[in-house]
Write a protein that binds this DNA or RNA. Structure first.
Lengths: 224, 224
DNA sequence: TTCATGCTTCGATGGTAGCCGAAGCATTGT
DNA sequence: ACAATGCTTCGGCTACCATCGAAGCATGAA
């Protein structure tokens, strides 16, 4: 089972080190986990067999990266659960500050800015949260149409909800997922407010200067 | 670490059995995992400490349920990853026929319809649930007076609460007990909407055709 | 009260998996 | 060719933890 793979501390440290989307060599991962290369080799083979990692040979190095964003998303969810109980592992969220600030979770915005955005939507009654479910209000629809040219009919999907609360790995609070979360992220990219980092596989989202200003104007809480 | 909890096969089986949102007793979970009760007890304590499960004591039974939708979501994500590598788990679906739909629990309605009724009351804010306790709202009192001719003073009792969440035997979710639950069931009988089955000792409740219609009109969720 | 049921705690056992040292390939550089 | 680096395989050791028997509580019923 997959969870058993993530359950081992050494492997968990390796996976956490890969959460920024970059690839690391086997020895780097060994050092990251505090184990010898031969032990790491065994772990990496298991992670690869479990479909969590994908290897890439380059010279005498062997680079490993997370298979895809689904894996990263699940790991983020696990980290979120762990954070709630205080039963956390040594590493608290991503150490990379850029990753902490804004990153891709599946297809929507996560990190500090992602949490901040949902907070803003909530306090201004653009969305309404009941228990786990979030729904768009009439005011929210107007807001989206006016400021981001997003209309409700773009958001309907047979099996996916428009809004969904997704537990944020680093912030330990919810950010916005669902078709709306995805659509907003896509709009940010189209407007050239933000773009995924050029490094292949990286999950960092870089905001442009004007993008940051516009984002703050729409979702800022005054202090940013 | 949370993943280590899910990683153990026995615990994984327990969690999978709880994925439908219903609650199961410790012994049922033990059987589900194929282990003895004392082993299960140890596992359940760990899952509870890890924040994945929440217990609910009822009589000499101890029911466990998943803490919230976040937990279920992460488990689903893990199952999704596992499914990609070819390792799937089968879903259990055996159980009884019409006793499951509607029956008497002490003196109130239980089964699918009982659970559905409480769900309906909750989503329409006719009752408010705080933790384990349920209380009738002002709108709920109006609703009862108008549709079932039940007034609040009929419900007061020295030792019994008006509303109480009772864990449903077949659905493993809450239905409504207390003096209100009893009064509503009694009213259903008086209105000839439903009656206990004729066979002695049977706990089945049979709804008449008109009763079923009326019940659905009051508490239906659209699909029934 | 006494009995039965459901669950937990205690203690001991065993299997499994992580771990490292040493040796074995593989690739690159001189 | 040889050496150096990076990674893997092998073997044995160790520690952890799931597991169960037996006994201890708690609750509900007779």
């Amino acid at each position: 089972m997959v969870a058993a793979l993530v359950g081992d501390p050494a492997r968990a440290n390796m996976l956490t080190a890969l959460m920024n989307g970059r690839a690391l060599t086997a020895s780097e991962l060994a050092q990251e986990a505090g184990i010898t290369p031969q032990t790491a080799s065994s772990h990496l083979a298991k992670l690869e067999a479990g479909g969590l990692l994908e290897p890439e040979k380059q010279g005498r190095h062997r680079y490993y990266r997370l298979t895809d964003d689904d894996v990263a998303g699940v790991l983020e969810g696990l980290a979120g659960l762990a954070a709630r109980t205080g039963h956390m592992r040594v590493r608290t969220g991503p150490k990379d500050p850029a990753l902490r600030r804004a990153r891709i979770c599946y297809d929507h915005l996560a990190g500090d800015l992602g949490v901040q955005m949902l907070d803003s939507l909530r306090t201004r009654n653009l969305v309404r949260q009941k228990k786990q479910d979030i729904e768009l209000t009439a005011g929210g629809e107007r807001f989206l149409a006016r400021n981001l040219q997003i209309s409700p009919d773009m958001l309907s999907h047979p099996r996916r909800p428009v809004c969904k609360a997704c537990l944020d790995w680093s912030e330990r609070r919810h950010h916005l997922a669902g078709t709306l979360g995805a659509a907003m992220m896509q709009r940010f990219a189209e407007l050239k407010w933000a773009a995924r980092d050029a490094t292949p596989g990286s999950r960092v989202v870089n905001f442009t200067r004007t993008g940051e200003k516009q984002f703050a104007a729409l979702f800022g809480s005054g202090k940013d």
